[in-house]
């Protein structure tokens, strides 16, 4: 209990004292997580809508691969990205390994299946009759899509929150592709692992409180968006 209280005090001290390194790590964490979830949403939302509303040959197979991705171990994602970006790998020429971009790539790999799969599930539940009714109201295809997105706002934001939860908690892949380089690729989760391995539990706990606060703030903002104007 004392350790927890000490950790919380240290976290407050770190924030109030304006520790430059903590701010840099927190800012980088926020940046990579938000960019990752933004890209995952931009790809996963249309893909999920398409898979949810259409039927074509090979759709089930594609869905199966996406659903397998839900349980993709982060270290496996990290390993794949590492092999892709390794000097002799297909994208080795870009020299992106051990950069924040590499962390973003790994985080997209783990969050994209979540956003896609949950979006697809939501759209798949729209009944044929509802689609018929919207068409009968005189909606164009774009208007139909917009109406459905508005109707499924809660489920879509839940998919984005689940994806964000995965990227903010991610450590294995970030460690592997980012290398936890001070001032360059060090993010909150990789720093916590490092401090624990050094036996600095108080610093690790302090950073964990900062990480929790960041996650809480972002999730609270998304929840506010999800639940606003809900009338009864």
């Amino acid at each position: 209990m004392d350790l927890l209280i000490d950790g919380l005090k240290k976290a407050i001290d770190m924030i109030l004292s304006g520790d430059q390194e903590v701010f840099a790590i927190t800012w980088l964490t926020l940046k990579v997580c938000l960019i990752s979830i933004l890209i995952s949403t931009l790809i996963g939302l249309p893909l999920g809508i398409f898979l949810g509303l259409t039927r074509f040959k090979g759709r089930r197979l594609l869905l199966m691969f996406i659903n397998i991705g839900l349980g993709l171990p982060p270290v496996v994602a990290g390993l794949w990205i590492t092999m892709l970006l390794w000097r002799s790998g297909p994208l080795g020429g870009l020299t992106l390994l051990y950069s924040p971009t590499a962390i973003v790539m790994a985080q997209i790999l783990v969050s994209l299946p979540i956003v896609t799969s949950l979006t697809c599930t939501a759209f798949q539940q729209i009944s044929e009759k509802m689609l018929l009714q919207i068409k009968a109201l005189g909606a164009t295809k774009v208007q139909t899509l917009w109406l459905l997105i508005k109707q499924l706002k809660i489920a879509i934001l839940a998919a984005i929150m689940a994806g964000f939860g995965r990227v903010i908690a991610e450590v294995g892949a970030a460690m592997m592709v980012g290398g936890n380089i001070q001032g360059d690729t060090r993010i909150l989760t990789t720093t916590i692992v490092m401090e624990v391995s050094k036996g600095n539990f108080d610093i690790a706990l302090a950073l964990s409180f900062i990480l929790l606060s960041v996650a809480l703030l972002i999730t609270a903002a998304l929840t506010f968006l999800q639940q606003r104007k809900r009338i009864s």
Partner: peptide, 21 residues
């Protein structure tokens, strides 16, 4: 054409109202 479909209106057995006022 959309202009023709918009001359018609339909109400089904289930009211199928949207989430909103």
């Amino acid at each position: 054409p959309l202009e023709l479909r918009r001359k018609f209106s339909i109400a089904l057995q289930q009211s199928l109202l949207l989430d909103g006022t």
